[in-house]
Amino acid sequence: MNKSVLLGTVAAATIVAGSAFAGTLDDVKARGELICGSNTGLTGFGAPDASGNWAGFDVDLCRAVAAAVLGDPTKVKFVPTTGETRFTALASGEVDVLVRNSTWTFSRDNDLKLDFVAVNYYDGQGFMVKKDLGVSSAKELDGATVCIQTGTTTELNLADFFKSNNISYTPVTVADDSEAQRQYEAGACDAFTTDASGLASTRAAMADPANHIILPEIISKEPLGPVVRHGDNNWGDIVRWSYFALLIAEEKGITKANIDDIVKAATDDASYDPEVKRLLGVGDNDTGKLMGVDAKWAYNAIKAGGNYGEIFEANIGSATPIGLARGLNALWTEGGLQYAPPLR
């Protein structure tokens, strides 16, 4: 009898563990909440504000996914993860999706069994130094002490960059951005290196941003994007298309403000742009059915924080303290790389 109880427990434990990885969509719906892995605090991308509300470029994508799946952008729980813990948190099922400026690489895709479903920010690694150091190029950093965040691709790019330029450096490995900023400001390192967007964000959070310069060299490709677990393709598709919906919305000029007018116009006008009708679920268009979400999924996602361009400008754009230009992240129609496949 003892034995059968034990075996029963084993079987039950295995089944419970198994179900946690098969249908993320069902789990999220049953829970009524999306759990999103985010940064521990990177101004403009993902950080809690003074009253504890999360805000940022990555955070808004999480909200868009929550809106698409649950119809409510506030039903998100943000779990702060460090560079070290993020992929473990995702692989173990602690978070449903990771939107935490993570670089898409071959080994993460294949060895870590993760799926990068899109690129929401095309970035590259740069260096920040104090202005009075008198350095104008990263190649002049021979012998410098450099602060890096451990567990990141930047750690490996840094080693490669100094090696290929035949110069030396002393690494100071730190666990997260805020510790790196503290060490850099205290002068424990001459330069701080991370993704250029992260540098801009760190600089904006400093007391004296004008005294720091970001060196012109961009030493790597850093495509940052949302990540899901390998093997749950339906969930991956939902996250991917929630993001594409934001891109298509920008392309079609649909904003948070005018979306209701457009729905109304599309409902009344039989000859309105059919892609917009499919996107917004106007009439008997139901693109959500195939993914297992509501017909209004894209409408909800766009309504949450606006289209891609609006999210960009509100969090990290040129009007914010971070002041990043669209650059590579402009739409393909404007010479950038952001390109959504057709929704049909």
Binding site: V10, A13, T14, F21, A91, K113, L156, A159, P171, V172
Partner: peptide, 27 residues
Amino acid sequence: NTIANLAMRDKDINFDFLFNRAGYDID
């Protein structure tokens, strides 16, 4: 249970990584 759960995530126990290039620097 460990092996079954690892298999479910397409992971195995493998120490080959010890012979791969590290790629990072140590102070």
